[in-house]
Amino acid sequence: MKSGSRLERLFAAGHFVCTGEVGPPKSASSRSISRHAAHLRDAVDAVNLTDNQTAIVRLSSIAAGVHVLGEGVEPIIQMTCRDRNRIALQSDLLGAYSLGLRNVLCLSGDHQAFGNHPASRNVFDVDSIQLIKLVKDLRDEKKFQSGEACRVEPRMYIGAAANPFADPFEFRVVRLAKKVAAGADFIQTQAIFDLERFKRWMGMVRDRGLHEQVHIMGGIVPVKSAVALERTGEVAGMVVPPELFKRMQGAPKGKQQEEGINIAVELIEEIRQIPGVRGVHIMAIAWEEMVPEIVERAGLLPRPQLEETGPQARE
């Protein structure tokens, strides 16, 4: 085992893994995190904690991870390169591990122009691929970026993102290969709406044998309305096929939420059939309470139990 995290053990045991996501609040209260974690507890295997997503200041992902852990849920802390240099990133990895956190998702991070502090500076001392390597160097080589030895190393299970819907399309699988070579253990993809393009991408992934080197999870975003779906399609790097939009628009008033759930369930069922896909990552931000129903209808309940190795020890 690289990290011994619950997530790693589930993949190792061959399960089709299901993860969720919680966006920490714009406040110093942990109440909403604990509430959402409780909603997700029996529906997913682990929960991502976003790191100041869309460059809006929120309670830190590491602190949120500790609150989630307190609810008996496995946390995956997201870590972006936007706000911290290599000193702060390594420091936070040490701290996160000492608090019992075992999974980290390495991201570039949304540009701060999107957020509520557009006048801030960005850092990007390292990029997401360099961050993956940094986490792996700490874990497997027991060394800091300076080359110095780390006496008690943080043994993190390393996640990364992949966006099959961004351009240039042919490069997307090369980028995935770079992330795998850098040390990614699992991948969560951008939200899938364009199933055909995702299938084409997975074909390229299999051609390179990458599905055997990394655990790929398909991203799912349930949408509440046709308007929400339209907005999602406008985000850079997201593709929403026109047929899907028409289908949402065609749903009668008051039934659009139900149609959004139907679409999410169907997508999960389809994605699950694609060779090489090892799980789904459901991002139902501000709609966490619907996740158990989606997972159940997709036939993914009950979630697997693991023989407990005891609570994750704090170092």
Binding site: H111, F114, F124, I129, Q130, A161, D167, A236, G237
Partner: peptide, 29 residues
């Protein structure tokens, strides 16, 4: 590159444009 990425392009590159603005070319494209 808006993020000075040395291993780009990031997931925000679409149709040759950067995620921050449709007027900004994606350097990695």
């Amino acid at each position: 590159c808006s993020k000075s990425l040395l291993n780009g392009p990031c997931g925000g590159s679409q149709d040759g444009k950067c995620e921050i603005d449709a007027e900004v070319e994606c350097a990695w494209q």
